[in-house]
């Protein structure tokens, strides 16, 4: 796979404090890469450095092999979808979309052709004469995407583009965005703090914490084989067992519960069910361990319910292949 963006030992300091310690990352052409992390982890700063709105304190960014250090944002062949869309309020939908083409002095006929194409594509044809104020959040979001992709950028940068929308809309737009990316073949660099969103759309996820990339891998790899404690606890739910220096993570759905009298080699710990939460397709069971000061979470799916009740004493076990040893 060809590398489209390469970050080499990028660093960012803000007034003396290190926001991003030296970091390297390469993004393949046509891939959907998500920068995922809690707020303040440096993911947006990283994206803004790629876009050119922030200057790296040290290091170099390459786009298609060419260094970007002295290239201002308006000469970088990529576009951004902003968090609050940043549409131009004094222009109609159409004028917003055409803005980039006009700035680049694309011939008028070509402008019109691309405008029509992108209006069709984003289902905005009927709203073309409206101003951003007359649009709903979801519609504004479409305009922001249309305004970016009409320029045929090599890379599309997206800064929490669904953050301002309600849950249902977010779900359906996730699918749309993923399809858009597949069909256009544009490289997407997507910033979010929502792990579900990252899981649903990405080819690769870079999990960030305190300016570092803790792990970069496919969603399945990140979920099944988290490398660090941070990744194991930030993505999904996990049980972390400590033995000496090592930590072991076991997903709640991998935890198996037995009656106490089952032979001991099948189980490792014993405890008592303290709480149960019914979620429809599954039940969450919280088990207080006897030998350790810790509560274990187990998922019990509808269909294979053993009929456990709060207060029951249980033995806990898991298959050896279901445990993941973490680096700290």
């Amino acid at each position: 796979m060809k590398t489209i963006i390469a970050l080499e030992s990028i660093e960012k300091h803000f007034s003396g404090s290190v926001v991003i310690p030296p970091l390297s990352l390469s993004i393949a052409e046509g891939e959907f890469l998500t920068l995922l992390g809690p707020s303040g982890c440096g993911k947006t700063t990283l994206l803004r450095m790629i876009a050119g709105f922030e200057e790296p304190t040290a290091g170099e960014i390459f786009l298609d092999g060419k260094p970007l250090t002295n290239v201002p944002p308006y000469r970088r062949d990529m576009n951004m979808v902003f968090q609050q869309y940043a549409l131009f309020p004094h222009m109609t939908v159409e004028e917003n979309i055409l803005f980039g083409l006009k700035m680049k002095k694309v011939p008028a006929a070509e402008q019109q052709r691309r405008l029509e194409e992108v209006l069709q594509y984003t289902h905005l044809a009927e709203l073309r004469k409206r101003t951003p104020k007359q649009l709903s959040g979801g519609q504004q979001q479409r305009v922001a995407i249309a305004r970016a992709i009409v320029n045929n950028p090599k890379v599309l940068l997206l800064d929490e583009p669904l953050g301002a929308l309600d849950y249902q809309l977010r779900k359906s737009l996730q699918l749309e965005l993923k399809n858009l990316q597949k069909n256009l073949g544009i490289t997407f660099v997507y910033v979010t703090h929502d792990q579900e969103e990252a899981m649903a759309m990405s080819d690769r996820i870079a999990v960030m914490n305190k300016g570092r990339i803790e792990q970069i891998a496919s969603p399945a790899e990140i979920y099944n084989h988290p490398r660090t404690l941070f990744v194991a606890t930030f993505i999904g739910e996990n049980n972390i067992f400590r033995s000496g220096d090592a930590s072991i993570a076991v997903r709640p759905e991998k935890i198996r519960l037995y009656p106490l009298e089952v032979e001991p080699d099948k189980h490792r710990m014993t405890g008592q069910i303290t709480d149960m939460v019914f979620l429809g397709n599954l039940r969450k069971l919280y088990i207080r361990l006897y030998d350790e000061d810790m509560t274990v979470l187990a998922h019990e799916y509808a269909g294979d319910s053993r009929g456990w009740r709060a207060g029951d004493q249980v033995a806990i076990g898991w298959a050896p292949e279901d445990e993941v040893t973490l680096r700290c």
């Binding site: 308006y74 004094h90 700035m103 680049k104």
Partner: peptide, 26 residues
Amino acid sequence: DRRKLEAAYDLGATPWKAFWHVTLPM
């Protein structure tokens, strides 16, 4: 909102064009 100005740069507007087409009208 400064993001509007960044959006203009992002879409290829030089600082002067961004001022003329975005900052001044806004």
